[in-house]
Write a protein that binds this DNA or RNA. Structure first.
Lengths: 220, 220
DNA sequence: TAGATTGTTAATCGATTAACAATC
DNA sequence: TAGATTGTTAATCGATTAACAATC
């Protein structure tokens, strides 16, 4: 039981994981400007971070830099993508073809981010059997069986709040292991299921609070 | 210079701010079940948090509980809303009436979250002068002037990546003080402008990474 | 070689968790 | 009164930042 050495054992913190896509953003821009190497300092400046933090984050991807030169941009992009598993695509089902769901179905860029939405599901009969961005909308009853048969591992929930838990249950029954949840509700799931919340209100609350504080400070 | 006592001086951490909307979600549900008091323990259980953390967070809103009884739900909801400034509505402009922007324009619930989108702006002439959810879509050229004249303080950016910085600049020129940014780019803004990023890729990266780790663990 | 930059170990900071007295 | 729950002070934990040796 003495540490069966794996390529990369250290767990990445959630904070680091959330910064990695930001690095990719900067790196892609630099790459398009034909730049080949970048220092941690340059990245830090672009994003308003600390260069030590950038180096720590990048170290977690396993990519190493060269003293005096910095990091090879191509290698770094690939390393970060690999860490996020964005160099593979995982099949996903989306449930809830309302306006947000439809907008997500229209996103071409998810394939660059490891996500491949292969079907959508709906409650509402009038929407069923429509097609958005080449993705067919199926009746919700088929969700569990199809997820199971097609070995789909990711579920995206964009249904109203009162249906979200039920949809999550069906997903899990179908073997789905990770849920990207846009409904403003805390889903109850077994330990082996990963839930990532993408709820607008969380981010909006930070904004409205900070703005109020900032404007208050002015009238002092 | 010795502490001009204000109602509530302690700064709220960003972590706390992000949890506050989750408390509201639970509290509203309990309220609909006619429950009047709730303990920090019950809230913690519902959300998978620690009850001490819940008490600390709630303390930051200024609402106090009663030993043995817990917190009065109505009072708590109001206190949290006040902390987030969700008991006021701040006027906002949205720029970029693509699919995501249009979906956001359709959200009726932003008014419960302190946000009142009063106009949308677009580059694309074919979309200009359309109306979505009673909100008129105007040509982008009018953005700065109108923001200034109408004293709009919040800007929502849902344009493609290559236009986002320019739109942010126009917003700031028009006096906008807080930007809710959905474009996957780090905006450069003066210190007095608040930027809150709502970028899907950040949350998606956490999901795809964790799922990969989880599935890897299984085949060990 | 001198200088810039990496990568790591140590120090600091802030957030979470624990302990416990106060109180209804 | 006894017991449950709050609210606060102290302890722990983890993430950020600092210091610095290694290296190209």
């Amino acid at each position: 039981m003495e540490m069966v050495a794996e390529k990369q054992v250290k767990a990445l913190s959630e904070r680091t994981l959330r910064r990695l896509p930001r690095y990719i953003e900067i790196l892609k821009r630099l790459k398009s400007e034909k730049i080949e190497f970048v220092s941690s300092n340059m990245i830090a400046d672009e994003l308003g971070l600390d260069s030590i933090q950038v180096r720590k984050d990048l170290a977690a991807t396993g990519v190493t830099g060269k003293p005096k030169l910095g990091f090879a941009i191509d290698e770094l992009i690939n390393g970060i993508k690999h860490t996020l598993n964005w160099d593979n695509q995982t099949d996903a089902f989306l449930v809830g073809a309302g306006s947000l769901g439809s907008a997500l179905l229209g996103y071409k860029t998810f394939s660059d981010h490891g996500l491949n939405i292969i079907a959508a599901f709906e409650n509402e009969p009038s929407k069923v059997s429509g097609i958005i961005n080449n993705i067919t909308i199926l009746p919700i009853e088929k969700l569990s069986d199809m997820a199971f048969r097609m070995k789909v591992h990711i579920g995206v929930i964009t249904v109203p709040i009162d249906q979200a838990q039920h949809v999550a249950d069906m997903m899990i029954e179908g073997g789905i292991r990770a849920i990207w949840n846009f409904a403003p509700i805390h889903l109850k799931v077994p330990d082996f299921v990963i839930v990532e919340n993408a709820q607008l209100s969380h981010s909006l609350g930070v904004l409205t609070h900070k703005l109020a504080e900032s404007l208050k400070g002015e009238n002092k």
